[in-house]
Design a protein around this nucleic acid. Structure first.
Lengths: 152, 152
DNA sequence: TGTTGACAATCAGCAACACTGATTATCAGT
DNA sequence: ACTGATAATCAGTGTTGCTGATTGTCAACA
């Protein structure tokens, strides 16, 4: 009896925002991990490459701010990307406290390939929605992410 | 010096599903935590109370399956709810391996109050969207959460 | 010029969390 | 009775993100 609960969303939770966000996110993490494994990067590392490609070069702190990850987390992120040969650290000549992080040619190539795979995975993931539904979802999420932190 | 990046979603990431899901979820966790603090439960504990109220009584495993949390995590969840006096464990008489978990009257009261607060918080959280937009968001999330695990 | 306060990157340690695997008690079927 | 499966529990592990301290550097100013 009722072992359908294993992968169907149970009635009592179906409308809970927290439950839905968490599980959809989890699903996506799994799906994107699967899609990105062949490229040797995970979703967050790819996002780092993407922000570095967007702005020519950034300090670690700037990159961390862009991605809204902790500054100490960025250290490790850049570490692994550097080991993989996708980025390079360089001391800024204008402010020698800063590490300028830049894409290597290999990093740029990998970014291009992996981005394609990510986009494809995202398309597949959103396939259960109508095209306009997918679009509205992204727009709604963007709105909520950008909304000012509720001032109590 | 672009410190606007701290709370505005940077261009390069604005359309990343993973980024958006993660940060919207994080925002919601913060908001709901703030809303629920006065009631002495967090979002997950409240969800446990809700599934217990929906189905008269459940074994721990059944409750865990409903919420899609690990069975070992449910042990701790029930532990703290029991300490707070909101649920009670009872050995099933029909299958003495099972712990039947049931709401106490105090748990039922707390659930009612806290649910009201959660709904109110959810309304506030979704306020930046139009009413129909909020509705569509929930529907889309429900669809994605229920979609069959992509079969590669 | 030397001193002061702030900031960038790094590192070590901590807390939260969920999972794996083993253990104990119980069940159902032979 | 004996066997294989299942429920709850616990101990240990790995991950993650954070706090706080450290080191080097900067900018401002007496």
């Amino acid at each position: 009896m009722t072992d359908d609960a294993t992968d169907a969303t149970p009635e009592a939770l179906a409308s809970r925002l927290g439950y839905l966000l968490k599980h959809v996110h989890l699903r996506w993490v799994e799906a994107s991990a699967r899609a990105l494994t062949p490229f040797g990067v995970d979703g967050r590392e790819l996002a780092v490459l993407a922000v570095l490609a967007a702005d020519r070069s950034l300090s670690q702190m700037e990159a961390a701010a862009r991605l809204a990850v902790d500054r100490t987390t960025m250290v490790g992120l850049v570490d692994t990307l550097e080991e993989k040969g996708f980025v390079e650290r360089r001391r800024s000549s204008r402010d020698r406290r800063k590490n300028i992080v830049e894409l290597t040619p290999a990093g740029r190539d990998r970014l291009r390939e992996a981005e394609r795979a990510r986009e494809e995975a995202e398309r597949r993931f959103l396939a259960p929605l109508s095209p306009s539904g997918a679009d509205q979802l992204l727009r709604a999420l963007r709105t909520l992410a950008a909304a000012p932190r509720s001032a109590d």
